[in-house]
Amino acid sequence: MATMTSAAAMNSLYAARRRRNAIMMTLAVGATLLGLGWLVVILGELVYQGFAGLSLAVFTEMTPPPGADGGLLNPIIGSLILTVLAVAIGTPIGMLAGTYMAEYGRHDRLSTVVRFINDILLSAPSIVVGLFIYEVMVAPMGHFSGLAGAVALAVIVIPVVVRTTEDMLMLVPDQLREAAASIGMPRAITIIRVCYRAAKAGMITGVLLAIARISGETAPLLFTALNNQFWSTNLNAPMASLPTVIFQFALSPYKDWQKLAWTGALIITFTVLALSIVARALASSRKSP
């Protein structure tokens, strides 16, 4: 039998362990509340500041000179053009590359290397992409252009689409491929007619995530598409986009420009959040059955 003192020592040791556990668990709850708190604070401020400037004029008028009224029509249209173009360029390349990795060369060396490089490109600093496109497009052409901006965004789209395409094709059961092969279906037709169709929801998710990713990108546009105060849909000329206009307006000393910047920020954030929530819902509805 233990003596009274060692029993007391045991008890105090136990109490210390319990106490330490309670402290760490409290910290864990606190950290989670802090993390959620940031989200609430940031979104709350955005809604508060952004709604104040939200009106029909925002969607129907051009960006104003300082001191005048105006809207964000040209940057909204510019952002739409750049995004659509970037997705149109980046998605096919990304899908084909992902297809190679999942279907043809699942274990070969090329796929292993591409997978590794692609994962790095996925989180590479986007400003470096801007410099790259400046070097290969803007400098040789001699001027900034919407096209260069779209290509810069496409370079960001590609790794996202490669990754999701590969992951989703990997989830397609091999029995489907074997069944197709057993009735004499060529590989290419199996991939297009069977695998793509089975992985459709996941691949759309990938594209949505890519759109969400690029619609807020500013750094790669700063020295490719630049910015444009006026209405322009000319791909060969500088083009306005929401992120660059926010950057310019927020850092300006003019109150009405700052207000428009907040409104633009609200529009972008809710577009991005809506896209990522839809993408998530799509992905999880695919998983459940």
Binding site: M95, L96, A97, Y100, G105, V114, A124, V128, F132, V162
Partner: peptide
């Protein structure tokens, strides 16, 4: 042709990285 196309795209990812590095 399809296999060639997908392989080219996969190599394209490597070319992007190489291009970034080279142009910088």
């Amino acid at each position: 042709a399809f296999r060639f196309l997908t392989k080219t795209a996969a190599i394209g990812v490597l070319i992007i990285l190489g291009g970034v590095l080279f142009s910088l």
